[in-house]
């Protein structure tokens, strides 16, 4: 069989993106990142290096941060995916991280921001009261070439405080 006849190899998958259910056929070699951007049409997830170094494409898969360029879309079958478009509440109220990033000038060009926010959603869920060193360590998987990170660190620490205030002293949940 020639390559033309064998490919594209398609597979049906079912997953949710930000709570919305998708039943689609994906090419088996397609990365989750490309699927989210091109098939689902949510372009908030950015692709930087496409080999797992920059962190821009980070999304939450079943609540866990993952590089969507290092996963095949077919591997997300059955998963709940959260992208940057899904972190605000349903009524459009910004996530505390979004408020804090806005106020502390934690982004300039914004290319890395989606990956940083999704990573920090998971980090602050597991570590609701981090110190600065822990925040810097948690940010080490995301590259930002604009800000010098200072504003991001400040914003994450501020968001942690806002989230703790919202949860009103309720402890973290570790799955």
């Amino acid at each position: 069989m020639s390559v033309e006849q064998e490919f594209p190899e398609l597979r049906p998958v079912v997953f949710t993106v930000n709570g919305e259910r998708y039943e689609i056929d994906v090419e088996t070699r397609m990365t989750l990142a490309d699927c989210i951007r091109h098939q689902i049409g949510k372009t908030g997830t950015h692709l930087g290096c496409e080999h797992g170094v920059c962190g821009a494409c980070t999304v939450l898969v079943d609540g866990r941060s993952a590089r969507s360029c290092l996963m095949l879309a077919v591997q997300a079958n059955g998963a709940e995916i959260t992208t940057i478009e899904g972190i605000a509440s349903e009524n459009g109220e910004w996530h505390p991280l979004q408020h804090a990033f806005h106020e502390h000038h934690a982004l300039q060009c914004g290319f890395c921001t989606a990956g940083i926010m999704t990573s920090m959603v998971e980090f602050l869920r597991e570590n609701p009261d981090p110190n600065e060193e822990e925040v810097r360590e948690a940010l080490s998987g995301n590259i930002c070439r604009c800000t010098g990170y200072q504003g991001i660190v400040t914003a994450v620490l501020d968001a942690a405080g806002r989230l703790r205030a919202v949860s009103d002293g309720v402890g973290s949940r570790r799955e």
Binding site: V3, P8, E9, T28, R29, T31, D34, H51
Partner: peptide, 10 residues
Amino acid sequence: MKPPPFHYHD
């Protein structure tokens, strides 16, 4: 940058 074509088995 995309993975090359391959047959996928799971």
